[in-house]
Amino acid sequence: MTEILRRCSRSSAQKNLPRTYPVAGIRKETTHVHTFTFNVSLGAKPGQFVMVWLPGVDEVPMSVANDDGKKLQITFFAVGDTTKKLATLKKGDLVGLRGPFGTHYEWKPKQHLALVAGGYGAAPMFFAASEAAKDGCTLTAIVGARAKEHLLYLDAFKRLPRTTLSVATDDGSQGHKGYNVELLAELLKSKKKPDQVFACGPERMLVKVSDLCFQHAVPCQLSLERYMKCGYGLCGNCVVDPLGIRLCTDGPVVKNDLARSITEFGKYHRDHLGKKHSL
């Protein structure tokens, strides 16, 4: 029994209990996007998420945008009640964090990685890129947004070594006019075919990345989002059909073969009641 208790405390420790931290830094990225810095490390790896608690409002999942062993960052879009209220916080205001949860992106030293980022996906993609750069990886970052003013993390990507940055905007206000996946398609056809593709962004984008990588037989890892409550495998709210796996523990980062065996991928997701909504 003591052995089991030891195992319990290692696996659950205080990681499943939120603790509040003052917001130590705020960076306004675009009109709707902010990056918060907290003076704490949760030991998160790129692709993992934390539950972000705004006391009195709600607690929502956010990908870790950076965790360097001293501070942790999140980058978020103000889309609804919680995130809009988060966006009004000032330095010193308290936000609860617990985690990190889930799987993370995996690479081997010196690999060539293509990172496809849509929307706030640029933040976790940058975290992955900066860690992979330390392992000597060569990087092609493909960042997309609706328009120039919504592009995220471009300067950060530019500062990384061995990194090529390509940009796509729907309206052509910067870079390629069209979708970032079109740039990925070109890269996969070229001589500079990457060893792996990482992607984080809207599900429609992920479906295209998945298809392209499948066609070109390039391994890829995708971050899938579902409605999260506990974050550690109890509530079952983040389960996907037909596998019944929980994306808070077996995801959010999944390899392409797993993503392609999730029949609801690109089709529907479930809300907080377990009710299906088509994409």
């Binding site: 319990c8 405390s9 539950m51 609860g96 550690y232 109890l234």
Partner: peptide
């Protein structure tokens, strides 16, 4: 209820 809905210690 809204989150947080589930929390644990050892």
């Amino acid at each position: 209820h809204p989150n947080p809905t589930i929390i644990s210690t050892e």
